[in-house]
Design a protein around this nucleic acid. Structure first.
Lengths: 328, 328
DNA sequence: CGTCTTATTCTCAGGTTGAGTATATGCTCA
DNA sequence: TGAGCATATACTCAACCTGAGAATAAGACG
C-alpha cells in the first residue's frame, strides 16, 4: 500500500451558505457584496482553526459578513472547486480548496429585510423557476435556444436531446417538475446560456443571451443556490421545514403563500388546508388576523411535538392544475 | 473583514466509500482489513494531488485497496472528523482531516463475492435492521436497554424520551420506518449501546452489551454505512437505482429480493410487480429462467431510456402488512 | 397423473387526491 | 345600515392509487 503521509495534499475548506427567508410571499437568499466581477456572492469563508465544528465555522462567517444569526442548518453538498463543467463526470479539483455548501432557513422579521438590502429574490436569479402565475413566456425562449444546434452538448442524437430538454424543462407534453431546478441550471450552463459558462472559459458573453438568463453570482454560487432550491423544494414535501421560515404565529394562507414561494407553483387552497390539518402540523392560537382584507383568518402555530410523532411530516404539495392551465 | 489568508487552516481530505452489492438476496458492503483495533474498515484514503476529481480519487483508492471498479457513485455526506457525539449539535472538527463519504453501487458477479472475502453483510453490522422475517426479537432487548435510565441522554422528560425511542425504533404502536437506519444507529451510539461509544471515549466496553449490538468498524465507518443505508433505502423509492445492482438480465422475483434485501422489509409480491410494470421500468428479453423451482420466470432487462421519460421513476416500496404482522 | 413450487393475472374495498361548490365572516362604502 | 366585496372555512364527489388476497398457469418431481 502507498504511503499516505507523503502524498496527501492539504487543502483549504471553504464554507458557503445558502440562507433562505420568505417575506410577503417572496423567497429570498442572503448575499454579500464582493470586489470582484459579478459583485454579488453568497456568504462564505474558509474554515479556520478557531472553528469547533463545520457548522460553527459557517455560522461565524455568515454572522461576520451579514449580522444574520442562523438557526436551522443542513449540509447541501461538497464541491471540488474550480468547476469547469458541472454535473458531467464530476468536476475538476482545485487542489487549493474544496467547498462545503450548507442550506440555512431563517424566519425573517420584516424590518431586517429593509435594514440591509442584501436579500436577493430567488427569481431574479432564476426567472424561469417562478411559475406561480403560470409558466413564464421566457421558457419558450429558453426552450428554443436549448434546441438550437449550438446548445446541444454531449448527446449526439437530436431526438434524444430534445427529449432530455423537454424532460428537464417540462416542455412538450411533459410535466414541469419544480424539484429539477438544479438540473435546469446545469443544462443552461452546459449549453452556454448563462453568463457563468463564458466567464469560466474566459470567453466574452454573447451579447444577446443576457436578457432572460437571470442575475449571476460569483464563482459557482448560483449553482450552489440551485442545489439549495432543489433540495428545499423536495424537502418541504416530507419534513416540516416550512415552519422554520414562518413567524411564531401565522395564518394558513400565509403558510400556503410561503409554500408557493418556495416551490414556485400555485397550490390548490382547499387541499393544502386539508393536508395541513390532516397531518396535525399546527394548532390554533386562539387569535385571529384581521388584516386579511376579507374574513379574518385564525392564527396558527406549529405544534413542536410533531417531530416526535409522525414518521415524516411534511406537505406533499402538488400543483393546482387549473391554475397551472389558466395562465399558460 | 478578517484577513482570510492568515487564518485559514489547511486540512487533509479523506475519501471514504460505501460500496454496496446484493447477491443471493443479501446486501453486502465492501470492506478492507486494517492493522488497528477493530480490524475492519471501509475502503478509504486521502485526496492526493494526482486526483483530478474527488470521485476519481475515491475510485483510485477503492480500486487500489480492493480491486473493485466502481460505476454508480453519489456523494453521501461530509464529516468534520473525530466524531465525539454524532448528530447532536454537529461534531467536533479534527483540524487535521475532513472526510467526504460516497455511496457506490455495483452489480456483483457471484464469483467476485467468493474470490475476496471482503464483502460483509449489512445485517452483521446492523442486526436490528433486517426485518424481512418480521421484527427480530433483538429489538425488544434494545428497546429495554434504551429505556433504562442510564441510556437516556439529552431529554429530561421520561415520557418524551420513550416517545422518541418508539418513534425511531418503531416500537409501541408506532410503525417501523426502514429509512431511519441512521437515526437508530446514532441513538444507540448516544446511549452507549454500541462498541464505538466506549472506544471513542476511551472507556472499556461494558461486557454484557456486545451481544446484540452488531460488528463494529474502524473510526466512524459504521455510522457512514448507516448513512448510506438510509440514503439508499430512501432513494430506491424515487429513482431507479435498484438496477445498478442487478445483472443485465433478471427475473422480477430477483428484483424484488434485491429491493427487500436493501429495505430490510418484506414486500407484497403482486403489488411490487404491478408497480414495476406500471412504471415501465423493464422490458422482457424473451428468455426465461428455469431454475426457479416452480413455474419458469420471464427474464427482464432495464429499459435504459427510462431516465429520460419519467419525472422520477422508482419503486415506492411499502411493507407487506400481513408478513409484517405474521412474525411479530 | 397428482402434488409442489413459483409465476402471473385479476379483483375488490378502502384510502388518497385533484377539483369544485357552498357557506361564513368581517370590512368598506354608498 | 345593509349590499357588495374579499377572503376564510366547510363539505362533496369522482378518479385514481394502494394494500391485500383469490384464482389461475406452468414447469418439476415423484
Amino acid at each position: 500500500m502507498v504511503d499516505r503521509q507523503q502524498l496527501e495534499s492539504r487543502v483549504r475548506i471553504d464554507l458557503t451558505a445558502v440562507v433562505v427567508a420568505v417575506d410577503a410571499g417572496q423567497p429570498y437568499v442572503l448575499t454579500v457584496d464582493t470586489d470582484d466581477a459579478p459583485g454579488i456572492a453568497l456568504p462564505s469563508g474558509p474554515l479556520v482553526p478557531g472553528h469547533r465544528t463545520l457548522q460553527a465555522g459557517l455560522r461565524a462567517w455568515v454572522e461576520a459578513q451579514t449580522k444574520c444569526r442562523l438557526e436551522y442548518i443542513e449540509q447541501l453538498y461538497t464541491f471540488g472547486d474550480r468547476t469547469s463543467s458541472p454535473m458531467e463526470a464530476g468536476e475538476e479539483i482545485d487542489h487549493r480548496a474544496v467547498s462545503i455548501a450548507y442550506l440555512a432557513l431563517v424566519s425573517m422579521p420584516t424590518d431586517q429585510l429593509e435594514m440591509q438590502a442584501h436579500w436577493l429574490s430567488w427569481y431574479a436569479l432564476f426567472p424561469w423557476e417562478d411559475r406561480r402565475e403560470g409558466p413564464s413566456p421566457l421558457i419558450n425562449d429558453l426552450h428554443d435556444r436549448l434546441l438550437a444546434p449550438a446548445s446541444q452538448t454531449v448527446t449526439r442524437n437530436k431526438r434524444v436531446w430534445r427529449q432530455r430538454v423537454d424532460h428537464i424543462f417540462g416542455t412538450g407534453l411533459l410535466p414541469w417538475d419544480e424539484e429539477r431546478a438544479l438540473e435546469r441550471y446545469e443544462m443552461l450552463y452546459a449549453a452556454g446560456l448563462v453568463e457563468e459558462t463564458h466567464r469560466d472559459h474566459d470567453q466574452p458573453p454573447p451579447s444577446a443571451s443576457a436578457a432572460a438568463a437571470g442575475v449571476s453570482l460569483a464563482a459557482d454560487h448560483r449553482r450552489i443556490l440551485a442545489t439549495g432550491i432543489s433540495r428545499l423544494r423536495a424537502k418541504i414535501k416530507y419534513r416540516p421545514v416550512l415552519f422554520e421560515l414562518m413567524p411564531p404565529e401565522f395564518t394558513l394562507s400565509q403558510l400556503q403563500k410561503t409554500a408557493e414561494a418556495l416551490s414556485g407553483i400555485p397550490l390548490h387552497k382547499q387541499n393544502f388546508r386539508r393536508l395541513v390539518e390532516q397531518q396535525n402540523l399546527v394548532e390554533e392560537t386562539g387569535g385571529v388576523a384581521t388584516d386579511t382584507g376579507g374574513r379574518p383568518a385564525k392564527l396558527m402555530r406549529f405544534r413542536e411535538d410533531v417531530q416526535l410523532e409522525r414518521p415524516s411530516p411534511g406537505l406533499r404539495v402538488s400543483a393546482n392544475r387549473r391554475a397551472r392551465a389558466r395562465a399558460s
